[in-house]
Design a protein around this nucleic acid. Sequence first.
DNA 1: CGATCATTGGAATGTCAATTCCAGTCGAAC
DNA 2: GTTCGACTGGAATTGACATTCCAATGATCG
Lengths: 212, 212
Amino acid sequence: MTKSGSPASASAEHKLTAPGRRTRERIVQAAADLMFRQGVAGTSIPEIQQAAGVSASQIYHYFGDKRGLVRAVIDHQTEASLDGQRPILDHLDSFEALRAWCDAAVANQERRQCEGGCEIGSLASELVETDDATRADLVEAFERWERPIREGLARMQKRGELSADADVHDLATMMLAAIQGGLLLTQIRRSTHPFKTATDAALAHIETFAGR
Amino acid sequence: MTKSGSPASASAEHKLTAPGRRTRERIVQAAADLMFRQGVAGTSIPEIQQAAGVSASQIYHYFGDKRGLVRAVIDHQTEASLDGQRPILDHLDSFEALRAWCDAAVANQERRQCEGGCEIGSLASELVETDDATRADLVEAFERWERPIREGLARMQKRGELSADADVHDLATMMLAAIQGGLLLTQIRRSTHPFKTATDAALAHIETFAGR
DNA sequence: CGATCATTGGAATGTCAATTCCAGTCGAAC
DNA sequence: GTTCGACTGGAATTGACATTCCAATGATCG
């Protein structure tokens, strides 16, 4: 299907021994952290070397080049971000759960003083137009995020808590869009207000489809 | 108050003669175009020189450094983007006008095959965390965008077409967030569907407050 | 017309990043 | 235990980029 290259997640290109896997992980973690705080373009390889305590050859050994490292960071950051929202993310099948989830996201922004924006969205915005392989990784990242939302809504619909003519696919997309846009505005204005406003509206819109 | 420097828009630092103003404008225009297509970090000064047909000293003469140029680009791009939405942007005081406005935005995305995202949002996402002066410019850019939306809603409210307990400030923010998030998703997925979904939901939510 | 300052060209400087190379060590499978 | 390939360190290479400098030209205002 795609001839774009290796899948983002698994790289079977190298046989990894135990210490190799540990080193690789350390590099990705350090890179993800730096890139979140300073952007991808604002993060240099030497900087990552120092933060991870590795030499240049190790980075190029495991990732080929910076593009490869960036793709690994996308994968890692997506997983980390979603893990941070679990277990609630996997049980978004009631209005209360949805609201609690949004509240937690708001609290999270407050904790970090609205700095940094969305771990995935910021990466995405900076990298969408780099190349098709990277963009495909981003599509997958958002799909991984949207799926649990959609499936929660689908369960609600199956139970009749959501009207049969609600399009759970669209509702999940809409929710994601509200989150992304809301986060961008709160990041810029350094206030959780826009994010709260956007997610509140999204929730209200979903409740519009409450069944029976 | 702020010692951060000059305001983004007017730079009274230099006396500009007629040819000077023309050159300055040519530089900003070329820079804005390149930065929209390749990102700010992905656009070098030499590249801008060539595109604008100027020498390095001219850029540094008019903008001091790259940061200064970027701030000018934010201002220019905001004005250009808003101008592209006029005159309808200044008459967003009916549900029909709002819908027509969103439709035009969708058509615009289709025309450019969902590439590039939002002229302001992409800049914003890349630049929010650079420094406070730049962030302040971005706050202002979004305010300039949000104001006509809010004022249109306010007129509707005054006429009774919008319920008295609708918060037009929040509704405008919500609309902007939906646009931003929707645009990011359509840019990534290369389909206008997410943007359409997000704006449709935003419009539906506003219509929820229809008065009488 | 002359002085002053805006405006330009183009070369020079210094820094730093991405990537490559080579040589050496270590782990695991046979 | 030896052999192959994974793993690591560190120096070297190459190139680009932001910024500065200097010397010239042109416009404006009195």
